[in-house]
Design a protein around this nucleic acid. Structure first.
Lengths: 146, 146
DNA sequence: ACATTCCGGTTGCAGAGTACAACTCGCGAC
DNA sequence: GTCGCGAGTTGTACTCTGCAACCGGAATGT
């Protein structure tokens, strides 16, 4: 099936291009929040608070990396840790008000960039594209596991 | 237009997830070739040889970064430089045989991962997804300029 | 023809992100 | 109580990256 083959090829290539660009443009678009910090904050917002280990597992990062990122975010006042009264080993991480603020602001900026980029797209295409991406990322493992 | 709004939202979110995952999975899938090295080699193959400055411009990297990457790739024997007889400032970069070899090998591995991930997709969807991605990346600037 | 400016590339420096390994401390099982 | 395990931190080292300063060749203007 020639068409499917080359479509897969194209998908691979274009996803790779996008991934390679993303970090640089994130740096330019919101220097105050790296791509990783942004996704960590985002995860905290979604989950409403979780442990550092959860973040590490979820993002396939070493726990030391997460520990340092978390320390930086705390230093910046964007998150806070509260020790778990049950188990003194764990600490729950939560967004602070400032963290929610920054996150919302960066999200707005990113959203604006995406919206502009997609401005000319017919609604049908947007919906389908979104569905494809969700479906792709929902795949368990492969090019980019969680 | 509610649907389009939320579609854009989803696209932003999913593209971000993908981008964040890409590095880690690239490292796991082919430790011998970072994502950037891979795309640089890929570009050299596509273009059939180009200058370091072209790479820098194309990938929005600083020329010093490219210079170092190129040096490393040359040290590894994957590319070679040949001074331009016309202009002694420039040097054309070309894949060596070993470079083509490695590139092909990594591409095979990546392709297999993508293919597996997309195995269940109907051909129509693959084709449309590929087209959307191309269209997205073709946009001049925005979330991830070239 | 010479000076100035431009351009491709390299190098020094600094900072972020990351992993691995060794460590501390608290929890739970035996 | 001791032992192993899990959460998190810290030391170390390496890569990637950008900025700024620089070198040398090319192009341009006077």
């Amino acid at each position: 099936m020639r068409t499917a083959e080359s479509a897969v090829e194209t998908i691979q290539r274009e996803m790779t291009v996008f991934a390679r660009r993303a970090r640089a443009s994130a740096g330019r678009m919101h220097p105050e929040l790296s791509l990783v910090s942004y996704t960590l904050l985002g995860h905290l917002e979604e989950s409403g608070g979780c442990r550092a280990t959860d973040l590490a597992a979820h993002y396939a990062l070493d726990k030391s990396t997460v520990s340092r990122q978390v320390a930086a975010l705390e230093r910046a006042g964007l998150i806070e840790r509260r020790p778990d009264p049950e188990d003194h080993r764990v600490q729950e991480l939560r967004l602070t008000g400032a963290g929610q603020e920054i996150l919302a602001q960066v999200t707005r900026r990113r959203r604006a960039a995406f919206r502009e980029r997609l401005a000319e797209w017919p609604e049908d295409d947007l919906v389908r594209f979104a569905a494809y991406l969700e479906r792709y990322n929902a795949g368990v493992e492969g090019i980019g596991p969680d």
